[in-house]
Design a protein around this nucleic acid. Structure first.
Lengths: 128, 128
DNA sequence: ATACGTGTATTATGACGCATAGTACACCAA
DNA sequence: TTGGTGTACTATGCGTCATAATACACGTAT
């Protein structure tokens, strides 16, 4: 009964894949702010991974501000963080540049790239 | 005398960083189609990395179609590859989704994300 | 109080990738 | 021939990843 699924594939670390799936679920609205997040041991059991690996995921999500820990209780998904717009853009800088480089490597145009971005944005949940 | 620079930082593999820097230079127009690409041993010497690591970079760039090997001579940067638009978009799929997820995690809006994409596109070289 | 489920911390181990080092070969040009 | 190209192979030290097995402080429910 986990609110997201992970298609384990080689190429990136296991905990990175779980981390991304969880991020995607939270950001996409499948888990609303205040909802309970699966416990470390539940994650480990359901996904058939080591508790240490599952804990690493929760640790990272907490550090990113997506989860809040209730000691002795568990974790709940947090509200959207604050922070200035320019600061946020700066954090995205590298990833945006990497995507642009990759798009041009494939010979795509700016309009096509932006179209793909909008498409994925809508797929993930139109609002926001 | 290498047409690009690499700021070595931890977090990703060494050859990945060199690979990305080279891709960026080619795609950004710093190296035109037909220009000679630094040899494996030159790369190794200038960047102070192992020849095997340098060769891995050239190998990957060749596999991506960005370089062409002239046996016994060296490498030159290739022309833009063909391929259908839909096929290219499919290859970008994961990276686009990852960027969208990251942007929403930071609480950015679609317009802001599109703006950042366009900004980096222009920075890399307005045309194309 | 007891039992159970939280997050967290610690140590250990095997597997894998990365970067390095060294050597060797087929190819082409001056 | 000499020197520079890409390529292939083996080997080694290092770090990360995922696993395993405990252990502790905390809070809830019985």
């Amino acid at each position: 009964m986990i609110p997201f699924r992970v298609a384990f594939e080689p190429g990136s670390a296991l905990h990175e894949q779980v981390l991304y799936a969880a991020r995607k679920a939270i950001v996409g609205g499948k888990l609303a702010a205040g909802d309970a997040f699966p416990s470390v041991r539940t994650l480990a059991r359901e996904l058939k991974i080591n508790p240490n690996t599952a804990h690493k995921v929760v640790e990272r999500l907490t550090a990113e501000g997506l989860l809040e820990v209730m000691p002795g209780i568990g974790c709940v998904v947090a509200k959207a963080a604050a922070g200035s717009r320019s600061e946020k853009k700066r954090l995205l800088d590298r990833e945006v540049e990497a995507l642009v480089v990759e798009a041009r490597r494939l010979g795509l145009g700016l309009e096509e790239l932006q179209g793909a971005v909008e498409e994925h944005w809508m797929t993930l949940g139109g609002r926001k």
